[in-house]
């Protein structure tokens, strides 16, 4: 192809640095942050702290997997924090009453699936904005969690159940293994399955996807359902770790997960996202929080820092898009 012929089709060449930053941006930030913390923060690099860090990000990581799909499809889910709490509480209540771990876990996952299907149906079929829909279910589900627990923590009597959260394999906590598995599984689904590619197409342009024969509504409902089940699962793991169902837990968790995804380059307008970057986003959030804990930064200041990171992430997203 002659250079003149392709001039109109190809974009202006960009500086190599910008291009590299675009491709590897957050991975670079993650590497710098990790090295910086290792050098300057005492005890950061210890095995014990690494375990703690991994455990702390495991919940965000799990739910970020499905949130990635949600955002990539051009939607939002604010209800996950409430689902985490409600599923934990429900699992605890059912376990205490039936003495069966299976039934407890099933009940927890069931409530997550129910919330997810509802979100998906209302967003896809009734065409209500996802922000509004999940804002509503967020409050409904939070309230439901309080109702079934009467507002109090529900202690769990079945000790076998605690191994889900507190056991370890090769001295790596089980929840971390689960999260790693989720990263692999959902990364594979996004890149290597028709469903994953359809998700990105729906987020990139739902109308065009529909006209290309993609069942847009079905894709959205499946994603919201998976999101609900995943959040419920995270809630059950949490309940196992803290040996009780806490109706108050995980308020603001949804924003933590969304920040991690956006930090990982997932476009809030949909159509763009990759698992590797989301993992980077999750780790960045986790490392910052972990470092602040080690440096004894008071919790109140940590909120400020988290907010600033979210703002920075959104500005970064905008800046990247403006540049193109």
């Amino acid at each position: 192809m002659s250079t003149t012929a392709s001039a109109a089709a190809s974009p202006a060449p960009r500086p190599a640095v910008a291009d590299f930053f675009d491709k590897a941006g957050m991975l670079v930030v993650l590497a710098i942050l990790f090295v910086g913390c290792s050098v300057f923060v005492e005890n950061f690099l210890s095995w014990r702290n690494m375990q703690g860090l991994a455990l702390a990000v495991s919940m965000t990581g799990m739910v970020a997997c499905t949130m990635l799909f949600c955002l990539a499809a051009g939607d939002f889910d604010l209800s996950i924090g409430s689902v985490v709490a409600c599923a934990g509480v429900l699992a605890a209540v059912v376990m205490n009453q039936t003495e069966s771990i299976t039934l407890g876990v099933a009940a927890g996952l069931g409530i997550g699936a129910l919330v997810g299907v509802t979100n998906g149906y209302v967003v896809a079929k009734l065409r209500i904005n996802a922000l509004i829909t999940t804002l509503a279910t967020m409050q409904i589900v939070r309230g439901f969690g309080f109702i079934i627990s009467d507002g109090k923590a529900v202690g769990i009597g079945l000790e076998d159940f605690f191994s889900l959260g507190s056991s370890a394999l090769f001295s790596v906590p089980t929840p971390v293994w689960i999260t790693a598995g989720c990263f692999a599984l959902f990364g594979f689904i996004l890149n290597r399955t028709v469903f994953g590619r359809d998700t990105l197409a729906v987020g990139g342009n739902a109308e065009a996807a529909h006209l290309a024969g993609i069942a847009v509504d079905r894709v959205k409902i499946v994603i919201f359902t998976a999101q609900g089940v995943m959040a419920a699962f995270a809630g059950i793991v949490l309940a196992s770790r803290i040996t009780s169902g806490q109706p108050n837990t995980s308020q603001g968790f949804e924003l933590e997960v969304i920040s991690a995804c956006v930090l990982g380059g997932v476009s809030l307008t949909g159509g763009v996202g990759s698992m590797a970057f989301v993992i980077a986003g999750v780790l960045i959030m986790g490392i910052v929080q972990n470092a602040m804990n080690l440096m004894n930064v008071a919790t109140f200041y940590q909120y400020v820092a988290r907010g600033l990171i979210l703002l920075a992430a959104v500005l970064f997203d905008r800046w990247k898009r403006r540049k193109q």
Partner: peptide
């Protein structure tokens, strides 16, 4: 078009469903 996706993905947007292995895998 799906503006934020590649030429490859835009080309295969519809037919890849039928070409997928077991109807699922790209």
């Amino acid at each position: 078009i799906i503006p934020v996706r590649s030429v490859l993905e835009n080309t295969n947007l519809s037919a890849r469903r039928r070409k997928a292995r077991a109807g699922l895998f790209i």
